[in-house]
Design a protein around this nucleic acid. Structure first.
Lengths: 106, 106
DNA sequence: CAAAAATTGTAATTAATCTACAATTGTAAA
DNA sequence: TTTACAATTGTAGATTAATTACAATTTTTG
C-alpha cells in the first residue's frame, strides 16, 4: 500500500537525498564555505540554485552541495575558479549517473 | 594527506549525512509536515532540535528528520503522539547503530 | 457531554537572507 | 613595477522567513 520507509533503512537513502533542499546558511554550515562566496559563485553562473524567483531565498539540492565541495577542493589544489567549474561540469554527470542508478532500481 | 571525498563517491554518504543540518522550512518541504506541527512536537519534547539558543532558528539533523518521518507514519497508522514517540525512541537506537557502522569503517 | 490531546491561527518581534554598489586582495602578464 | 583581470570580501538598507506567546479550534476518549 504505502511506501513505508521504515527509518532504519538507510542502506542508501537516495530517496531522501532526492528531496533534500537547503538554504544558503545550512550549505555554509555543511561545507564551511562562506555565504558570500556561495553567492559570488552563483553570480558567476558556476552554481545554479533552485530559487523560485529573484529576491526569495536561495535553495540548494544535493547535487549543488556536492558541486560546491568539489570546487572548494579544486581551488585548494590551485585551479582557477573557471577551471574548477569546467572540471566539475564533467564530474556532475557522473554524480547524476550514480544517482540515477539508484532511482531506477525497483 | 587529505580526505578527498571525490564527490561521485556516494556509495554511502554517511559523512555528508553526518554534517547535515536543516532549517525548519526545509524540513517541512522535505517531509510535508507543517512547521507549526514540528514546533508543537518539539514543544512536547518529542523532537529535540540543535538550536543554539532560544530565539535563534531551529536546526535539525538527519536523525531528527528520520524521527519525524517515522512519527508521521505512526500517526497515520493510528498511534497517539505519545505512543509514536515511544516507538520512535527505540527505532532511533537502530538508526544510530546503523550510522555508527558506517562511521567505524576505515 | 466533558476533559484531555492534538492541531492550528496569528500578531508582534527578531533572525537570516536578499540585492547592489564598492573596496580589497591575489596573480600573472607586459 | 605597473596594469589588468580574477577572486573575494564588506556592508547598508530592504525583504523574507522564523521566533515566541497567547488563544482558538478540532479530534479523541472515557
Amino acid at each position: 500500500m504505502s511506501k513505508s520507509t521504515t527509518a532504519t533503512d538507510l542502506s542508501f537513502d537516495y530517496e531522501f537525498l532526492d528531496k533534500l533542499v537547503v538554504g544558503i546558511g545550512e550549505v555554509s554550515q555543511i561545507t564551511s564555505i562562506p555565504t558570500r562566496q556561495i553567492r559570488y559563485w552563483e553570480e558567476k553562473g558556476i552554481i545554479v540554485s533552485l530559487t523560485e524567483e529573484e529576491g526569495k531565498n536561495r535553495r540548494y539540492d544535493y547535487k549543488n552541495i556536492k558541486k560546491m565541495l568539489l570546487i572548494k577542493e579544486l581551488l585548494d589544489e590551485g585551479y582557477t575558479l573557471d577551471a574548477s567549474a569546467e572540471k566539475v561540469k564533467k564530474r556532475a554527470e557522473l554524480i547524476e549517473q550514480t544517482l540515477n542508478k539508484f532511482k531506477k532500481a525497483p
